[in-house]
Design a protein around this nucleic acid. Structure first.
Length: 230
DNA sequence: GCGACAG
DNA sequence: ATCTTGTCGC
């Protein structure tokens, strides 16, 4: 899909997000049916429009890499806070379509419904592909919250008025928390439970951390574009 | 008008 | 996001 969101303005993007919001589905997901989980991320050189997108598939709950997809494309939309999906989703979807077997759940680097119009990149990607997604960001974008206790696994909620949008999760003691929110086809509790099971030795949950490692290696030329079954 | 602001 | 060395704290 080259040219998706090519000549679109920010106001038009906002209108699109409001329409997509009506297509959101946040039902309960059967946790025991999750056997594979994916991590999606992109990397690029500063000042350049070439993006290196990738999706890593891990076994669940073992979290061992089983496959990955890498795609190099050109971005056509600038980075504007609140509209990340219009810049990164196209590349991620190409990497996604290149996967013969899709993971049961995909963790996207960014927010899900913890967004002004409930349409962060994880939700956006989910609505477009129909796949269950979870948003896992390193910084808050929208909503209020109290810091969670300094204990591994502790979490508090992100809220906007009466709406609970996500969770602020402490993945390790004495490190900044990460922000988790449902993207598509699963609720907040499912999202939290799954991310809790994705905590490894580092601050960033395994799916996102491995995806970030993957695309950086790709950008540095250490890996080739394509699909690899491990 | 002022402050906030994913990657 | 990416560019970068040392440095402070557990």
């Amino acid at each position: 899909m080259a040219g998706l969101y090519n000549s679109i303005s920010v106001s038009e993007a906002a209108a699109l997000q409001k329409e997509m919001r009506n297509k959101l589905i946040l039902e309960t997901l059967e946790n025991f049916m999750v056997h594979t989980i994916g991590g999606a991320d992109i990397s690029f050189n500063k000042y350049e429009t070439t993006v290196y997108a990738g999706i890593i598939v891990l076994s669940f709950p073992d979290l061992h890499p089983v496959a990955y997809s890498l795609v190099k494309t050109e971005v056509t939309f600038p980075y504007v806070s609140g509209y990340l999906a219009f810049r990164e989703a196209p590349a991620l979807i190409e990497a996604w379509e290149q996967l013969p077997q899709k993971p049961d759940v995909l963790v996207v680097d960014g927010h899900g419904i913890a967004h002004p119009r409930r349409m962060g990149i994880a939700s956006h990607f989910g609505v477009l592909t129909g796949q269950p997604t979870i948003g896992c960001a390193k910084k808050i974008l929208f909503g209020k919250y109290e810091p969670p206790l300094d204990v591994r696994g502790a979490y508090s909620y992100i809220h906007d008025k009466e709406d609970v949008l996500g969770a602020v999760l402490r993945t390790r003691e004495k490190v900044k928390p990460v922000f988790v929110s449902p993207g598509y086809k699963l609720n907040l509790q499912d999202s939290i439970n799954i991310i809790l099971q994705c905590m490894g030795k580092y601050r960033i949950p395994e799916p996102t951390r491995r995806a970030h490692e993957l695309v950086n290696a790709f950008r540095r030329g250490e890996l080739q574009e394509g699909y690899i079954k491990l």
